[in-house]
Simulated scan of single mutants.
Amino acid sequence: MDMNDFNARAAEWDTPQRVKKAQRVAAAIEGAVTLDPSMDVMEYGCGTGLVGLQLLAKIGTATFIDTSEGMLEVLSSKLAQQQLPNAQVCNVDLSADTSFSGAYDLIFSSMTLHHIPDYAAILARFSGLLKPGGKLAIVDLVSEDGSFHGAGFEGHNGFDLAQLAQAFGAAGLAVTHSDVFMEMKRENGRRYPLFLIVGAKAGV
């Protein structure tokens, strides 16, 4: 999907299937990263906040980032309705915007990396936004045959975990966790494995 597709589908995005998947993703992240109320956290490619909102009560502050205005409008409405003052939303493309700054204890992203052409560059960008000792958690597709998105998709057909671990290392992140933790069923009837990989930036 392109950005117009995401914007058009934002209001109906939170299907029961997506909510259930987000719950499993949030649980996997929480199982691999120790959360505490002092943490400053960023979710990149947050969509309507299905994953990040589940972690919000266990951290300090959250910065939700996406490039879909429609998705961010839905998320902003949720934050207002639930009166969650420790969160903010930002429309920023970190692949292109070099002015955005911050310092985070945790950055996480779910099903976004395969949409980013230069994934090595965005990993380095994430690393630069982490505090010493901070962690990056990525959930995405294990390498697949291209049928997940179908013809015309210009992103990555999933990732080889060994190669992604090398990219983490090149970005200054030591892998602390890596596993395939669930499968995602698509409209074509096939199931696609999802992985979680976590890397830590060197401490002071």
Rank of each mutant, 00 (worst) to 15 (best):
G146I: 00
V139P: 03
L161W: 06
F153E: 00
H114D: 11
A171I: 00
D97V: 03
K21T: 05
A8M: 07
A174Y: 01
V180C: 13
R125Q: 06
F168V: 09
S95K: 03
R125G: 01
K201S: 05
L75N: 06
F6G: 04
D2A: 08
E43N: 11
V33Y: 00
M182I: 03
K20V: 07
P117L: 10
A170G: 11
L129G: 05
P37K: 15
R24T: 01
L173E: 13
L53T: 03
F148R: 02
L123R: 05
L55H: 10
A62P: 06
M3K: 14
G203W: 09
S110A: 15
G150K: 03
Y119L: 09
W13H: 11
L56C: 13
A167R: 15
A200M: 11
F181K: 04
L123A: 09
L35T: 01
K185I: 07
E30F: 03
T67K: 05
D2G: 08
L141Y: 13
E12H: 09
G47H: 10
G134A: 01
L84K: 14
D66P: 08
A170E: 15
Q81R: 14
M111E: 14
A200E: 15
M71V: 03
E183W: 03
T98W: 00
C90E: 15
A170S: 14
K135R: 15
E154T: 14
A162Q: 14
A27C: 00
G155H: 08
I122H: 09
D140S: 07
L113T: 07
L164W: 11
V74W: 09
I138E: 06
A137M: 04
G150L: 02
P117F: 06
L130I: 04
R18G: 04
V25N: 05
A87G: 14
G49W: 07
A8C: 08
L84N: 08
A151T: 02
E183D: 12
Q17G: 04
R9D: 13
A62S: 11
V204C: 10
L53M: 14
T176K: 06
F153H: 01
E154H: 12
S178V: 03
H114L: 12
M1F: 10
V89Q: 06
G60L: 13
A200I: 08
S95L: 06
A151Q: 12
G31M: 03
Y192I: 01
D40I: 08
